[in-house]
Amino acid sequence: MRLEPRAHAPLWLQLAAPVGAALAALVITAVPLSWAEAPVLTAYAMLAQGALGSGFALTETLTKAAPLILTGLAAAIAFRARLWNIGAEGQLYAGALAAVMIGSGTVVLSPWLMVPLVLVAGALAGALLMLGPTLLKVRLGVDEVVTTLLLNFIMLLFVQMMVEGPLQDPMSLGWPQSMPIIDEAALPRLVERTRLHIGLIVALVAALAIWLTVQRTTFGFEVRAVGANPHAARFAGMSTTGVMVRVGLLSGALAGLAGVGEVAGLKGFLTQDLSPGYGYSGIVVAMLAQLNPLGVVLAALFVAGVFVGADSMSRAIGVSNTIADLIVAIALLTMLVASLVIRYRVRFG
């Protein structure tokens, strides 16, 4: 038996591989589920019902999908250029922090100006946070994996410092939370009496824009070329440094937007537990999507469904909700193996 590289993977295979990986993850998770003496099939039925079973469940899943689409795109565009940005979590917090600093009463404009302003501020903050590691990589060869990971911890401590210090809400009775986002800066609701906000539209537009960029522009071509073979790209006259810097800025900006959505669309104020690891889950989303920006939307819906569904499942049958993170982690590994099937053909004899 040997592996033979494919020149082209058929579309059905590119679609079947992630679906198969997701299903395999659910099958493997049956082991830890039965360890908890949970009825496996009932558990999955409850998970599906919790994620999709009612109008409210659907809006909850969509609400959670919005940040995952954005962090998934942040990882997808960076990984395409082989810029290993593992710092989306920190960039998300940078975006949230900027949104709170601008949007909690510092400036008061009409909502038509205020909402775009906090979105831009958050994107800029995320981009700026990613600029450092990108420049260190292209100028000094410092490994961006470690710097972006370490910056996540620095950023989280910085947010803690701000919500316990200068940004703390005087009305919060000592709780570490920031002053609230003013009404003018709050992202409008998409559906009345749900938590779904226009952050989802922002995410979908971003996915479409990134897809068009990757497929239809010179920059998109350069990103793919630098990712595939930086030496060849440089030989062809591309500035690999320039491409990397722009990819880094874009990736950070996308993660920053996710933070704006969470703080100005959902929670209304900043806390140190704003994100349950959306930055890291974004990596899983990007891999499930095979780094395809449109695939990111579907993959984010799956991961969001697992998070929302597992929450209600764990309440119903008493299995710890840490099962959600477990399913997502296993899905990343099964997808990694499934990517082999896309890239290689198995030949016998």
Partner: peptide
């Protein structure tokens, strides 16, 4: 299998962490 060392490593970290927390809770 020669898969991406970056992605596999992140996957192992997510798996080992979530499995540990899940086991602790059970």
């Amino acid at each position: 299998l020669a898969l991406s060392q970056h992605v596999s490593g992140i996957g192992i970290t997510l798996l080992a962490t979530s499995l540990s927390y899940y086991a602790y809770r059970i």
